[in-house]
């Protein structure tokens, strides 16, 4: 192999790479937070079976789960552009990630809720709790325990999929890497460093998530 690696240029551009990594974290955290809120609404609507809204929720969930993330991003960036709604790359990627996260998490939440037996509700009621207390002290804590790991996975997925911003010229870690390598033609070096950074970010997220879960659930999962 006669390829010479030149790492210096990559280390010179490290601040910009880190800036990109920050944007990656930023967009994925935001997409998770807003996604969770919408997912809760979607799950509630879907379980209520009130007709017109129920179909909207089902449509949202199935489209989000059955089409590629890249398609959603193109739709937000080019598709909406045709309607006269011009989103910046950041907003386009963010809204696509929110759309998908909401769809996946809605099913997670619904599954978590359904997995709590209805008898628990009656039992708590017969102990004299009111509805709010039943949810606050009995149902939701158990549900949270079951959806915690799927939620962590979804967060990791968001971090990895935000890399698709590279295709619409967004300045997150991949997009920034793409820009920097096009200035210096050290494609391999820059993308290897980017891959290592993604690996570290993912591992840090998983590690802190398991620390938090140990603190929250005290090992009983």
């Amino acid at each position: 192999m006669d390829y010479q690696f030149h790492w210096n240029i990559v280390f010179q551009k490290m601040p910009e790479m880190l800036q990109g990594a920050f944007v990656t974290l930023h967009v994925s955290v935001l997409s998770m937070l807003i996604g969770i809120v919408i997912a809760v609404l979607l799950a509630i609507v879907k379980m209520n079976h009130s007709k017109p809204f129920c179909y909207v929720a089902i449509g949202w969930i199935e489209i989000a789960r059955n089409t590629p993330a890249l398609f959603q991003i193109y739709m937000a960036y080019f598709g909406l552009g045709a309607l006269g709604i011009h989103l910046s790359p950041y907003v386009a990627v963010l809204s696509a990630l929110i759309f998908i996260n909401a769809g996946y998490l809605a099913e997670t939440f619904r599954g978590g809720f359904m997995s709590i037996p209805k008898t628990q509700y009656s039992a708590s009621k017969s102990l004299g709790m009111n509805s709010f207390q039943v949810y606050r002290y009995i149902i939701l804590p158990q549900m949270f325990r079951r959806i915690y790991h799927p939620m962590t996975n979804q967060f990791v997925w968001s971090i990895l999929m935000s890399s698709l911003g590279i295709l619409v010229g967004m300045g997150e870690l991949s997009g920034e890497t793409q820009r920097l390598q096009s200035l210096s033609f050290r494609t391999l070096e820059f993308f290897i460093v980017a891959a290592v950074m993604y690996f570290i970010i993912t591992k840090l997220v998983l590690f802190s998530s398991s620390l938090i879960s140990r603190k929250l659930f005290r090992g009983e999962i």
């Binding site: 390829y3 990895l160 295709l167 991949s174 494609t187 391999l188 993604y198 690996f199 993912t202």
Partner: peptide, 23 residues
Amino acid sequence: DIFRSVPLIIQLILFSTYIGAIG
């Protein structure tokens, strides 16, 4: 774990650049 913790798009770019670089 590496395959699952690095975005697929980066894996694709790295692989195709690498096989190009080694000729």
